[in-house]
Design a protein around this nucleic acid. Structure first.
Length: 718
DNA sequence: TGTACCCAGGTTTTT
DNA sequence: CCTGGGTACA
């Protein structure tokens, strides 16, 4: 028998060796889904005599794509060059580069990241003379991306019912025009363009349908409407789809993911079969029991039960802290104990619902002098100084790139103010050309001073172009940094503000070495693209690591969302409080929203390999105000027998007291039961302000939540 | 052009 | 409470 199958369990083997057909692999957390995906490809090659290039493998993140490529390299005993393994976006991008003409794009089109997109939208909204308070650029980005994810162009939108909608549609149209003029595409556009291109060009579509006999998709529960349509399109009538996902780990509905796509797959793809992977190789039996018990509360699941051949392991620790700092101290105490038992700091993760919660943990970690790493935040290629440098390179690659030009125009400052920039923008738009083109065509369309600074800018770019013409990527980068004045500018800034180690200059130097490395590694070059264009695409599509010192042994802090796909020997799942996790919004909405919160809890629990600590705080400062909360319903949904309560609850001994000074009223605690003359009895949920302005939020049994001014409410403690 | 203050707003995030 | 963005001045 094929050695590929040696280390697979029966269900995995069934999936890997399944006869030709469409398959939905329902793969639970830690059930080896990536292994199944890669082995399937290898098996098709070895047993069915197919070539790797007859397959298309799609993931959501670069990291997942990288992992898959690496594992495939091992299995196939050959480098994975030329193989189509990548993210939805990178594959769409590749198609567009190869067929830019059919897609209606200029050859050296650039990619707009979300930050750039918002800048462009801000301009567009200004140009339409709309109030950016009523039409916030961020919301515009959100809406436009949403429309694109639904494959809706402005013409296809339902007719606006109100003036407001009418304006939004106008923003969408103007934004599209601006992007087209500048030759830039945003992330959602990559997918939509590629989809439309294949739709409109039968020959192209048939070519790729024929070429990709097998289409394999990872994390299928995260696909949106457009991605689903895209998969159907590429599979066509003769191709075969092999999709892997877990409906219980669908936590991205808020950005357009449709879990329904899993059910839909079974009916849309003829003869599609479902294979479940339920054996878990990650966690202890106890942890899995907890996860199963929790997720069973959700309706309409495809349904699966994780099991393990491993021991049941230790009980799950449950800790009810008085406040968030005690919660943090306790978690860190557990981590230190775990490390004393021989674990590494990097084996320990602290997970939370929202980023703001990291603070208390960071403070506690600093106090104990433990190194830690917070996930999220600015990535390398998103840093301002990096984007400044890249803006020049983008201009060299494509002078029509307006967003890049606007960025480079006055960075470093060279006296081209907002007024001049606005004039240039407006005139170029009226002339229907890019800003660079306008500068070339009509350099005299400005006042004397503006004309002189603008012409200096034009000569600078022309000089850079001439100087970089014959250079390789790293050389071009070097020239840009030196001659644009960026390096000098940031050096001066560094001197003046005496910035510390993580300075902008160091980042610029890092950019140089990234470019040198990129060149040396010579990743597969897109057909007809220069090294520079390839690098710029890479920078946009792969924003890089969030922080340096990834190699350092440190406690890992991240949101639950960021933890998906990872695993840790010890997991501290924090903030299990009604109103925080699940969030109040989800509680108010109920239904799907609440179920998604539960899936998030499920994701958190299933990250843990050996030990799990679940904690909550009775009081917590949020936005500077004290809040009181009951333990999360999710705690109650885990069978008591699996939990070890580290401190039996009862009494809020240290909850802060609130009162009005110099008054007879006894001070009031969060969580205290109080009586009001008119509203009856209730529980104090939150307290704001102090002195005579002190207010409390009370949840009354009869009339619901009210906010009262303490000095007048005359509350009695019950 | 840069800096000081004021105010709103504060889930989750990849590409 | 803290951050980011916007406005008002030097």
């Amino acid at each position: 028998m094929n050695a590929l199958l040696d280390d697979l369990n029966p269900a995995q083997r069934e999936a890997v060796t399944a006869p030709p057909g469409h398959y939905l692999i329902l793969a639970g957390a830690g059930s080896g889904k990536t292994r199944v995906l890669t082995h399937r490809i290898a098996w098709l090659c070895e047993e069915q005599g197919l070539w790797p290039h007859n397959m298309l493998a799609v993931t959501f993140t670069n990291k997942a794509a990288g992992e898959m490529r690496e594992r495939l390299g091992h299995l196939l005993h050959q480098p994975t060059r030329g193989q189509w393994v990548g993210t939805f976006h990178s594959i769409a991008h590749r198609l567009l580069r190869m067929h830019h003409q059919e897609a209606g794009l200029q050859e050296h089109f650039q990619i707009l990241d979300s930050d750039d997109q918002i800048r462009v939208l801000k301009r567009v909204i200004q140009e339409l003379e709309l109030d950016d308070k009523r039409f916030p650029p961020k919301q515009a980005a959100w809406m436009i991306n949403g429309w694109k994810d639904e494959a809706l162009r402005p013409e296809q939108l339902p007719a606006p019912k109100q003036l407001h909608d009418h304006h939004w549609h106008a923003v969408y149209r103007a934004y599209e025009a601006a992007c087209q003029r500048a030759g830039v595409v945003d992330f959602a556009e990559l997918l939509l363009r590629a989809f439309e291109m294949l739709n409109q060009h039968d020959a192209l579509r048939m070519h790729y349908q024929q070429r990709f006999q097998h289409v394999l998709i990872d994390e299928f529960q995260d696909t949106n409407t457009l991605q689903y349509a895209w998969v159907r399109q590429l599979v066509g009538s003769d191709g075969l789809a092999f999709v892997v996902g877990d409906d219980d780990q669908s936590i991205y509905s808020w950005r357009g993911a449709q879990v329904e796509n899993m059910q839909r797959f079974l009916s849309d793809f003829p003869g599609a079969r479902l294979i479940k992977l339920e054996q878990n190789y990650r966690s202890t039996g106890t942890i899995l029991k907890a996860a199963n018990a929790l997720i069973e509360r959700n309706q309409g699941r495809l349904g699966k039960q994780l099991w393990t051949a491993a021991d049941s392991g230790e009980a799950i620790d449950l800790f009810g802290a008085h406040d968030e700092s005690e919660e943090a101290r306790h978690a860190i105490g557990q981590i230190m104990r775990f490390v004393e038992e021989g674990a590494k700091l990097r084996d320990c993760a602290i997970l939370y619902r929202s980023n703001a919660q990291s603070r208390a943990f960071e403070e506690a970690l600093i106090q104990k002098s433990l190194p830690y790493r917070v996930y999220g935040g600015l990535r390398f290629f998103e840093r301002a100084e990096i984007k400044d440098a890249l803006a020049y390179l983008r201009l060299l690659a494509n002078p029509d790139d307006d967003p890049a030009l606007e960025r480079a125009l006055n960075m470093p400052p060279r006296g081209i103010g907002d007024k001049t920039a606005e004039q240039l923008r407006n005139q170029a738009r009226q002339a229907g050309v890019s800003q660079w083109r306008f500068l070339e065509l009509q350099p005299d369309a400005f006042s004397n001073r503006a004309r002189s600074v603008l012409s200096q800018f034009v000569s600078l770019i022309q000089k850079l172009r001439a100087e970089t013409h014959a250079l390789n990527l790293a050389g071009q980068m070097e020239v840009v940094l030196e001659h644009s004045g960026l390096r000098t500018h940031y050096e001066r800034e560094q001197k003046e503000t005496r910035l510390g180690a993580d300075s902008r200059i160091e980042n610029l130097d890092e950019l140089l070495s990234v470019a040198a490395r990129f060149q040396a590694d010579a990743p597969e070059r897109d057909v007809g693209s220069s090294e520079l264009v390839t690098f710029l695409s890479y920078a946009a599509l792969e924003a890089g690591e969030g922080q340096s010192q990834v190699w350092e042994d440190a406690v890992q802090l991240m949101t639950l969302h960021a933890s998906k796909g990872l695993e840790f020997p010890l997991v501290c799942l924090s903030g299990l409080e009604e109103g925080l996790f699940p969030l109040q919004r989800a509680i108010d909405e109920g239904g799907q929203a609440l179920e998604e919160e539960r899936r998030l809890a499920y994701v958190g629990i299933t990250r843990a390999r050996r030990r799990l600590l679940i904690s909550f705080a009775e009081t917590r400062r949020r936005h500077g105000e004290f809040h009181y909360a009951r333990p999360s319903r999710f705690v109650g949904e885990i069978p008591k027998s699996l939990l070890k309560e580290l401190r039996p609850r009862g009494g809020h001994a240290q909850a802060p007291r609130f009162g009005v000074e110099h008054m007879e009223t006894p001070s009031i605690r969060l969580g205290a039961r109080v009586r009001h003359a008119r509203f009856g009895e209730g529980i104090v949920l939150a307290a704001f302000g102090n002195g005579e302005h002190a207010r409390v939020q009370v949840n009354f049994a009869d009339v619901g939540t009210k906010e009262l001014v303490l000095a007048f409410a005359n509350l009695q403690l019950v």
